[in-house]
Amino acid sequence: MAELEGIYTIWLRETKRYIRYRSRILTSVVTPLLWLLIFGTGLGSVIRFGGIPGGYKAFIYPGIIGQTILFTAVFSGVSVIIDRQYGFLKEILVAPITRPSIVFGKALGISTGSLIQGVILLFLSFVVGVQMTPLIFVASIGLIILISIGLAGLGLLIASFTDSMEGFNLIMSFIVLPMFLLSGALFPVIGLPSVLQAAVYLDPLTYGVDALRQVILGHGALPLYLSTIVVALFAVATILASAYLFSKREQELM
């Protein structure tokens, strides 16, 4: 009971932080729109994308939702480093609640932030000419929650190993950008050179994007149940791993 309340408290703080930084919400909606409208329209005008109504712009729409969640969730997870630098993490860590509860609360809070962005993007589906039905909307929300929890877990995992925000660029270049580019957000994952193909299937975000694309456009490289299972397993794995590491590395986190 006390643990549930602890999780709720940490979720609440994370969500308040998210909502109060209005500029962050704005940029996180404008950025995907730029991708869709400029990149999508630009590249879409030179390549032929049969089979999908709305063409290339529509094809990358689920991918751009995935990208938005990726950036928000991973960086919110990594923001634990900032909490540590500002000393606020100490206040949370010295409280009589377990480390896994802290991780769960954080992950749920981050997921809430990602969900807000995802929902805004779902409402903007008309921009790329994609039909949105209540069923698609609800199914997409479910997927967004799952994907964002996994990525939040990944961010927290990185944060538990990183001492300062100086590592931020490394995280960007070696984790976030490759995850985005390999996820098939911008190109179909079928018929790639075999090395690239293997890398694509090692990227957990590939399954998230594929599931979203399956739900939103009815097109996917993998069966929906399979990609959903992979996304769920990834979430369970990163959350458990970061809960374990927060307990283990408690001393270093202070």
Partner: peptide, 22 residues
Amino acid sequence: SRSLDDILTGREHLEMHASLYG
């Protein structure tokens, strides 16, 4: 060292602490 969150109010800090400590 300081251990406050700039973007929360004073009352919210107290509320948060009260619920973390049951």
